[in-house]
């Protein structure tokens, strides 16, 4: 057992380029702990989750206790510890979207994908989550994918279109206006 533990310790989660990326943030702040959130984002972007081992390595780089990283990480309901799908999509359920049908669109998308909010489709392509106001209420009822694409105003038909588009995977660049809905 002890030998095993040493073995996993010797193969770090974070590669040198990722560590370099994290270290590049250190000069921006008066102390290293402030790099926690940027580091979590870097790790999350790479692994699509923040594994426990990576959290320990972040702590080493920032010279803080792993518990401090965990404390911060767990406060935000943002960093899952098992990988999410290729695209993460949030459908808004706050006031303006709720009034214009957001809850129905969320239910529609869940049904269509066969998941409940917070789950990933079995093929690993899409993670569907509800969100509180996404700040795109001009397109309410609206959705946002984690590659920056905006969808809205959604109807059952455009929600279906959105799902089809999301199944193609993330994109590198997108316009600041919705890719589906009102352009």
């Amino acid at each position: 057992m002890a030998a095993d533990a040493t073995a996993t310790n010797s193969t770090p989660y974070l590669s040198e380029p990722i560590r370099e990326k994290i270290r590049a943030f250190i000069p921006r702040y008066p102390n290293k702990r402030a790099v926690t959130l940027p580091a979590l984002h870097i790790v999350h972007e790479h692994f699509r989750c923040v594994p426990f081992g990576a959290m320990k390595e972040i702590a080493e780089i920032l010279e803080i206790a792993p518990a401090e990283v965990h404390d911060t990480m767990s406060f935000y309901g943002f960093f899952p510890q098992a990988p999410i799908g290729d695209v993460r999509v949030w459908i808004c359920r706050s006031i303006s979207c709720m009034l214009t049908g957001g809850e129905e669109m969320l239910a529609h998308a869940c049904k269509k994908l066969g998941v409940t909010s917070g789950q990933t489709t079995p093929d690993g392509k899409i993670t569907l989550e509800f969100a509180e106001c996404l700040g795109i209420c001009d397109f309410a009822p609206a959705a946002l994918s984690d590659d920056g694409r905006i969808f809205g105003p959604l109807t059952p038909a455009t929600t279906d279109d959105m799902i089809e588009v999301l199944k193609q995977g993330p994109v590198a660049d997108s316009p600041i206006t919705p890719v589906i809905g009102r352009q």
Partner: peptide, 15 residues
């Protein structure tokens, strides 16, 4: 951080 439901003016100002 603009997260107050129904608010999106900071987004437009920045974009």
């Amino acid at each position: 951080d603009e997260s107050e439901p129904a608010t999106f003016n900071n987004r437009l100002l920045i974009e």
